[in-house]
Amino acid sequence: MNFKTFFAFVAPSLFMMILFIALPLVSVFIQSFQITQPVMQNIEVETCTPGFLTQTCTTEMKTVPTLDEDGKTITTTEWVGLQSYRNLLQMDKVWAAVSSGNFAEILQIDFWKALRFTLMFTLVTLPLVIIVGLLIALTVNNAAKSVRGPVIFVSLLPFIITPVIGSLSIYWLFVGDGILTAMMERWSGTNISMFAQAWTIELLMYFYRVWHVAPFAFVIFYAGLQTVNMDTLESAVIDGASRWERLRHVVIPHLMPLIIFIALIHLMDCYRVFEEIVGFRSQAHVISLQWLTFDFLTPDDAGNRAIARASASAMLTMIGIVFLLILPLRRTWRDHKGSAH
């Protein structure tokens, strides 16, 4: 296939990706150094209340947005350099906390709080997803053929469900008078509220994510288990390898590429953790990086969106993506080079 035909086939897709992914990224980069504000003016307002004989009048200065002839607010855009980043990172507070040795104070700042949760979330759920997925795959592979279809059907449900709805369904089990909270209260005899402190919410979020992603890992591992070389397994048996040794030295090495694949996908998806925050309504206790950007983009009570700050937090999130992808991309590049020669 020559270049021209190749380009003709790829062009529509490439156009979409450039217009709606690459250009917005450039735009976000520029926006993060700018700030757009409505032009404010001070006007003197005289308010009069009717009184006996004379009206009582007070004058006060009010700050209101300037309107143009169409009745729209006039806005100005100015370059502020790294101001938005500074507002977000609040490095002065961070240094103060570090020098006083009071590290917990750093986590009072939204950005660091979100970063801490996002990283922790990614690192805790990753091994859990792989282990639970592998366990399900091994047990399904072990089960009778007739039950495999229904088990796969049931297992796909948590994966396919809308993430917001999935986290809501778990939220309703544990909320105030939810059924599982009531059960735990009956067992422990104490009053439990799962959504009043950060650590219980986080536990539920880990649980939700493993519940949601383990089926994906399961299906892939299950497909991989079908291609395990039976001859190798049998010779391992003849050599006297126990079941555990066979799993460790034959099955898991065979599944290794799949484990790496799942880990990569999981890292990318976990880094974007967002729907849990919405479903669990945990913004007062636990927030993530993507939620932080979302929150800046949501209009506040006055209808203003903090675009500049959202852009800055988006750019900082991007830096994390770069770190996340460096290793896998280097690997892919080496593989590509290797296959070319």
Binding site: I21, L25, Q31, Q290, F296, L297, I307
Partner: peptide
């Protein structure tokens, strides 16, 4: 790998 909120920050204005 991009978080969707990054892109939406680019679209909104």
């Amino acid at each position: 790998a991009l978080p969707h909120s990054v892109l939406v920050a680019g679209y909104l204005p």
